[in-house]
Simulated scan of single mutants.
Amino acid sequence: MFFRWRPAHFGAEIYWMGIIDHDDIGRHRYEEAKRFATEMIALAPKILGTYVRMDVGIAGSDFDHQEAHKTYPIGLPSPQGDAILLHQYCYDRGIACGFIHPEDDLSRLKLFYVPHWVMWKDEWTAKLEAFAEAGGTVVIGARTGTRTGDNHVIRETAPGTALSKLTGVRVEDFGRLTAPGANGLFDVMERSGGLVIPPNKPAESNRRQRRFKIGNREMTAGHFYENLIIEPTSK
């Protein structure tokens, strides 16, 4: 709840104040913290054991996943950016939605979404498998599980053995696509001499298109694609 007990005496954070001051004397921040603790203790019987209702859970991104994504986003939004899109959609429609880690208790959820977590641990897959077997729905974002904890690309077919078994698919091919209506992959390109704006003419990448169907609607993919092989044993 509070950043630190006392502030640093040197370095870049000397004015990130603590509960007590540089001279080890507690003043108004100390009194505020003490009052807060007293109020929380009084509320404890009403709070302990309760939980926030959540029908849709989103794997909350963290520093490692955000930084791993930055190394090569390949046209995808960041895990956090993608998660916010779903959260906003649910919020606007009154759907109980929140952020939760794969290691946490997923049993009260109806749906769990993993937004492009390129680094993945097999023990998380076991949790998701148990959740799905109990009737929950799991949605895995593109490129999930395609890198190791060191941010190295895995040496097996994506998304790795455990996630492939869970999802029933393997990624045969993937790549970037132009955004809908764009002439090429990049609006602005960075070169050694500075930023370069490409000419307003269709690039070769503009010709590479992937189409897919949702129900009876055929749509053109944008930004990124994955071609999936569905395992024969998948339902």
Results as ranks from 00 to 15, higher is better:
Phe3Trp: 11
Arg6Lys: 09
Phe10Asp: 07
Gly11Met: 06
Glu13Ile: 08
Ile14Asn: 06
Tyr15Gln: 08
Trp16Tyr: 09
Gly18Pro: 00
Gly18Gln: 03
Gly18Asn: 03
Ile20Thr: 07
Asp21Gln: 07
Asp23Lys: 03
Asp24Tyr: 07
Asp24Ala: 08
Ile25Leu: 12
Glu31Phe: 15
Glu31His: 13
Ala33Asp: 02
Ala33Arg: 04
Lys34Cys: 12
Arg35Ile: 06
Ile41Lys: 10
Ala42Arg: 10
Leu43Ala: 14
Ala44Glu: 05
Pro45Glu: 03
Ile47Val: 14
Gly49Ser: 13
Thr50Pro: 03
Tyr51Cys: 09
Val56Thr: 04
Gly57Gln: 01
Asp62Trp: 12
Asp62Asn: 15
Phe63Gly: 07
Phe63Pro: 01
Phe63His: 14
Phe63Cys: 12
Asp64Asn: 13
His65Thr: 05
Gln66Leu: 15
Glu67Phe: 10
Ala68Cys: 15
His69Leu: 09
Thr71Ala: 12
Tyr72Glu: 09
Pro73Asp: 00
Pro73Phe: 01
Ile74Glu: 05
Pro77Val: 05
Ser78Lys: 06
Gln80His: 09
Gly81Thr: 11
Asp82Leu: 15
Asp82Ser: 11
Ala83Tyr: 02
Ala83Ser: 15
His87Trp: 14
Gln88Val: 14
Cys90Thr: 02
Asp92Phe: 13
Asp92Pro: 02
Gly94His: 14
Phe99Glu: 06
His101Gly: 03
Glu103Thr: 11
Asp104Ala: 12
Asp105Met: 04
Asp105Gln: 04
Leu106Met: 03
Ser107Ile: 08
Arg108Gln: 10
Leu109Cys: 00
Tyr113Ile: 08
Val114Tyr: 00
His116Glu: 02
Met119Ile: 14
Trp124Ser: 14
Thr125Arg: 05
Thr125Phe: 02
Thr125Glu: 01
Ala126Pro: 02
Lys127Ala: 14
Leu128Lys: 01
Glu129Gly: 01
Ala132Phe: 05
Ala132Met: 15
Glu133Pro: 04
Ala134Met: 13
Gly135His: 11
Gly136Ala: 11
Val138Thr: 13
Ile140Arg: 00
Gly141Ala: 06
Ala142Trp: 00
Gly145Asp: 02
Gly145Thr: 03
Thr146Asn: 10
Thr148Asn: 08
Gly149Asp: 07
Thr157Ile: 10
Thr157Arg: 13
Ala158Asn: 04
Pro159Phe: 00
Ala162Asp: 12
Ala162Met: 11
Gly168Thr: 07
Arg170Pro: 00
Val171Ile: 11
Glu172Asp: 09
Asp173Pro: 02
Gly175Cys: 06
Thr178Arg: 00
Thr178Asp: 07
Ala179Ser: 09
Pro180Gly: 08
Asn183Asp: 11
Asp187Ser: 06
Val188Gln: 13
Met189Ile: 12
Met189Arg: 15
Met189His: 07
Arg191Asp: 04
Arg191Pro: 00
Ser192Asn: 14
Gly194Leu: 05
Gly194Pro: 04
Pro198Ser: 12
Pro199His: 12
Asn200Gly: 02
Pro202Thr: 12
Ala203Cys: 11
Asn206Met: 05
Arg208Thr: 15
Gln209Ser: 12
Arg210Val: 15
Arg210Ala: 06
Arg211Asp: 04
Phe212Ser: 04
Phe212Gly: 05
Lys213Met: 09
Gly215Met: 09
Arg217Tyr: 08
Thr220Gln: 13
Thr220Val: 12
His223Lys: 09
His223Phe: 10
Phe224Ser: 03
Glu226Trp: 02
Asn227Gln: 09
Leu228Lys: 04
Ile229Tyr: 04
Glu231Gly: 08
Thr233Asn: 08
Lys235Arg: 09
Lys235Asp: 11
Lys235Met: 10
Lys235Pro: 13
